[in-house]
């Protein structure tokens, strides 16, 4: 009696779960190439932040200057910005195509050459930063300022101020 009732209850429950879950699973699609490129770009930016944050702190005097740590962060930045990001900027992954998920403006794809040359400047600034990072707080601060300016050159024209 109770076993039958339980069985009945469980079957109804199973059907209910299936009714809800199957369409939900069907709706959860595999991320598209564009979605993947956007999250990879953002992860790339986070890696830059991971190393640039402490260097900015040291440059501003908010963190004690540590030549060894500064050199390690600067080496990472040089390596990161040596990476060719061309493949991450898949057409159709601008903020117009995917609002609320990226700040990359469509103008990037209209002016790819300019965009690439700004990114090249950033790489150059990071090479200079890696050379200066271990040479004392003053040298670091100057190089961090130049690197920040190189970051800003793209943020200014190729990134929305707002999500």
């Amino acid at each position: 009696m109770t076993i039958t009732a339980n069985f009945k209850f469980l079957s109804v429950l199973a059907i209910c779960v299936a009714v809800v879950a199957v369409p939900t699973m069907a709706l959860t699609q595999e991320p598209t190439e564009e979605d993947k490129a956007i999250s990879q770009r953002r992860a790339f930016m986070q890696l830059i932040l991971r190393s640039f944050g402490p260097l900015a702190g040291m440059a501003k005097g908010e963190m004690t200057y540590d030549a060894e740590a500064a050199q390690a962060h600067a080496n990472n930045l040089r390596a990161l910005t040596g990476y060719n990001v061309g493949g991450l900027f898949v057409p159709g992954s601008s903020n117009a195509d995917r609002p609320g998920t990226t700040r990359a403006l469509p103008v990037i794809w209209e002016k790819l050459d300019e965009f690439a040359s700004r990114y090249g400047d950033l790489g150059g600034a990071m090479v200079a930063l890696a050379e200066a990072a271990g040479q004392g707080q003053g040298a670091l601060a100057a190089a961090v300022g130049n690197a920040g300016k190189a970051c800003g050159a793209c943020h200014e024209n190729f990134r929305t101020k707002d999500f």
Binding site: F52, A56, V144, C151, G152, H155, K161, D162, F163
Partner: peptide
Amino acid sequence: DDDILNKGPLAIYASTGLRSTLTAIHE
């Protein structure tokens, strides 16, 4: 917050969206 290395002293108390809006207004 310029998202690079300049951050107002109260920026940490605002959400990312609010911060970027206020930065745009500042400009």
